[in-house]
Amino acid sequence: MKKIVLIFGLIIGTILSANMLNMVTMIYNGKDFKGNDVVGYVALVVVFSIIFFGIRNYRNKRLEGQITFGRAFKTGALIAFVGSTVYVIIWLFYYYLFVPDFIDAYTACVLKNCTASDLPAKTAQMAEFKEMYKNPAFVVLITYSEVLPVGLAVALVSALILKNKTVNK
C-alpha cells in the first residue's frame, strides 16, 4: 500500500502544486486576475479524482479485487494527505523564498475586485489575515485547509464506490 499511496499522492501533489504556482504567479504579477472559487474547487475535485484510481489499483493488484470500505477510505485518505503535504511544502518554500510579500499582492488583488460598499470590511479582513499569516503554523494549517478537505471528500466517495468484500467470478 505504501508504494501506491506515495506514487498517487506524489502525482496529485505535483499537479496541485503546479496549478497553485500558476495561480500565485498570476496574482503576484497583478495581471487583472479574478479568481473563481467554483472553477477552483472543480479543479481540485478533478485532480483528487486520481485517488479513485489509486484505490482501485490497490484493490485490483494487491488485494485480488476485494477491499472493505475502511481500507479503501484509509488508502484514499493517505493518498490525499501525501498530495496535500506536497502542496503545503511547495507553498512554504515558494512563499518564504520567492514571494514573501505575496499577501500584499493578494490583498491588492482582492481589494481591486471589491465593490465600494464592501471595501472597508474587506480591508479590515485582509489586514487581520496578513497578521495571522505571520505565524508559520497558521500558514501550514490554512494551506492544508485549502486542499485536504476536498481530498478527503473524494476519498470517501471513492471508498463507497470501490468497496467490494467479495470477488465477482
Rank of each mutant, 00 (worst) to 15 (best):
T115P: 09
S49E: 11
M23A: 10
N135E: 04
Q125P: 04
F102C: 03
T123F: 09
A18K: 06
P120E: 14
Y87E: 07
G40V: 01
V139Y: 00
I161P: 12
F52T: 06
L16G: 09
K74S: 12
F53M: 08
G13M: 05
F138L: 15
Y94Q: 06
T85M: 11
T123R: 06
V86Y: 05
Y96K: 07
V150D: 07
F98N: 04
L63E: 13
V88I: 00
R59D: 13
N135W: 09
E128Y: 12
K169E: 14
D101Q: 09
F93C: 03
V139M: 00
A116R: 09
V139R: 10
I51V: 06
V38P: 05
F129Q: 15
N19E: 04
K74D: 04
T25Q: 13
M1D: 05
F52S: 05
K3F: 00
V24A: 06
S145I: 13
L97N: 07
F129H: 11
V42K: 15
I67A: 09
V24K: 12
C109D: 08
V150R: 13
K34G: 02
L119N: 11
I161F: 13
I142H: 03
V88K: 02
V139W: 01
V147G: 08
A127Y: 15
V139G: 00
A43I: 15
N135I: 02
I51S: 09
R71A: 05
F69Q: 14
G65L: 02
V157H: 11
A127S: 11
I67V: 02
K130G: 10
E131A: 12
I55R: 05
S49V: 13
A72H: 07
G30R: 10
K169W: 14
I51R: 11
L162S: 12
M1K: 10
V46D: 03
Y58H: 01
V99E: 04
F138N: 14
A124H: 08
L97I: 01
G151S: 07
Q125R: 03
F138P: 06
N164W: 13
K34S: 11
N57R: 13
I7L: 12
L162R: 08
A105Q: 08
K3M: 03
A108R: 10
V147Q: 08
G76P: 04
V167E: 15
V140T: 02
F33G: 02
T25D: 12
F69D: 00
G40Q: 13
A43H: 03
K163I: 11
N60Q: 14
A43M: 13
I27Y: 02
F8V: 01
L148H: 10
L156G: 10
Y95D: 04
E131L: 14
F69E: 07
T143W: 00
V140N: 06
F69G: 01
A80C: 07
I67E: 15
V24Y: 00
L44I: 10
V110E: 14
K34R: 14
Y87M: 01
P120C: 02
A159T: 03
G9Q: 08
V157K: 12
V99K: 05
I90M: 03
G35A: 09
A127M: 08
G54M: 09
K130V: 06
M23K: 10
N29A: 01
P100F: 02
